[in-house]
Design a protein around this nucleic acid. Sequence first.
DNA 1: TGCAAGCATCATTATTATTGATATTGAAAT
DNA 2: ATTTCAATATCAATAATAATGATGCTTGCA
Lengths: 285, 285
Amino acid sequence: MELSDLKVFLAIAEERNISRAAERLGYVQSNVTARIRKLEEELGLPLFYRHPKGVTLTDKGVTFSEYAKSILNLSEEAVQVVKETEFPSGPLTIGVVDSVTCLDFMDTLAEFQRRYPDVSLSIWSGTSPDLLTKVLEHQLDGAFVIGEFASPHLVSEHIQREELTLVTPPNMNGFPDLSQTRWAVSPAGCPFRRALEAWLRSEGVSFDNIIEFSSLETLIGCVRSGLASTLLPASVLAADYSAFGAFPIPEQYRYTQTCLIRRKDRYSSKAFVAFSKLILDSMAV
Amino acid sequence: MELSDLKVFLAIAEERNISRAAERLGYVQSNVTARIRKLEEELGLPLFYRHPKGVTLTDKGVTFSEYAKSILNLSEEAVQVVKETEFPSGPLTIGVVDSVTCLDFMDTLAEFQRRYPDVSLSIWSGTSPDLLTKVLEHQLDGAFVIGEFASPHLVSEHIQREELTLVTPPNMNGFPDLSQTRWAVSPAGCPFRRALEAWLRSEGVSFDNIIEFSSLETLIGCVRSGLASTLLPASVLAADYSAFGAFPIPEQYRYTQTCLIRRKDRYSSKAFVAFSKLILDSMAV
DNA sequence: TGCAAGCATCATTATTATTGATATTGAAAT
DNA sequence: ATTTCAATATCAATAATAATGATGCTTGCA
């Protein structure tokens, strides 16, 4: 059994299809078939059920895939750790919730690139739960998410407290009638949306007049064009404040916490340490 | 990088000699040389310093070897777990301190073999610190040791409290003069020896008239032949009690605890669970 | 019944690992 | 100094293994 066998195995498990796995791996189907059969033979048990539409993991296969992931993660980490130089370098993959990208976060990124040109930084954006999952699955070194997440595998550092504002189209005059408002919101799971829901529930207002946006840009565009209102950190609007109406909301719902999360058991590269240090410093200002 | 590369790497690291590693692995020296060079090339750094007497790990090599061990342990565990049947089977390696082998422990082993014939049990004996190390290094599934060991990687279960007795040659009459006694002891680190040292110190008696034995059998033989006295659990003498003088010692030093230890993070096979259950039951009687 | 999607088989080829013979090296002994 | 020894390094030849491409087999579905 070799690491490459585990990679082949996991590709099949994820694709649930040998041909697709082969394609993804850049191999020919017969090769992948042969390899997985050899692995099964070596283990003395089937890892997959074969059926006409593809394959699915057996129970033992599920167990084995958990180990395979751990083993491959560990082997990647081993290489990374040992290749690392004194000066931060190598790949660094960070997740950021959409709303944070609007802050002076971008300036900090630029500064980071200037200081550590040997780090190849890639930024992923997504919702907090998405990023959380990606961090847990070793697909991200760390992520900026909103809200508190308790997981035995994570550590989180508080970065910044955000102040939520009721954001309305510019033509509105004064605080709107909540029960008459149409809402533009992020997909379920977004902490801003949860705050809005909680607030409206406390006001006795129903929460069904909503339009859902997966991208923050289009959501803001929707508000700008007068179609709906929303709840967002004031900082997001900083650039063109005048294009919106902005109103404070009750203190109870006003604050959200941005955290930098990472896996507890994952080795933090020099690049990651430098990155989080820079972010913390810049946020402290 | 493959698991076999890691195995080759670790063999070299342990032997500190490529030729010996090759022999141990059943390969020819040039092959092992080529493989480790290929691995070093892949990592882009030297893992070993070459010198005329062999090789030694570089700093990075040390780091890498830690990972290599974890990865190989995990991969072995993966195979073991997935191969395991409902009924306890497969290899089971248990360490036992010498003194325990003298109890009705052997009966319990026989009973275990009768019940679970598919388990191939191997028993290692040694001193408590030795066994502790072997458990930590994944060389033993578990071990019976004496004394309490605190390690974040271990869990231990209390099996039995042993009662230490001053054991003297049979020809002695009455409690001996401690300051005139010659002592037969186990190597340093043995809890019986430590207890003896502590006791004698409290009595103001020096502890230098000692003969050291690495095997309990020969130590007992020494006492039987009248050369020395020692401190041992009463149970050890059960078989031929009359051949010795046995005296109680102060309560403060009288008791030692036998524990079954295992690694916290190691998967406990069905065989191990069955084994520890049987032992606990038999000891409870 | 025929088709399409998917895995299995197998002979062939390409790649990689292993060998065996030999070179090289540096330290210790003469 | 020279020899010897115990190491690792090199390299051409061979063995073992992996990958390919063509084809066969099964199943569900139109």
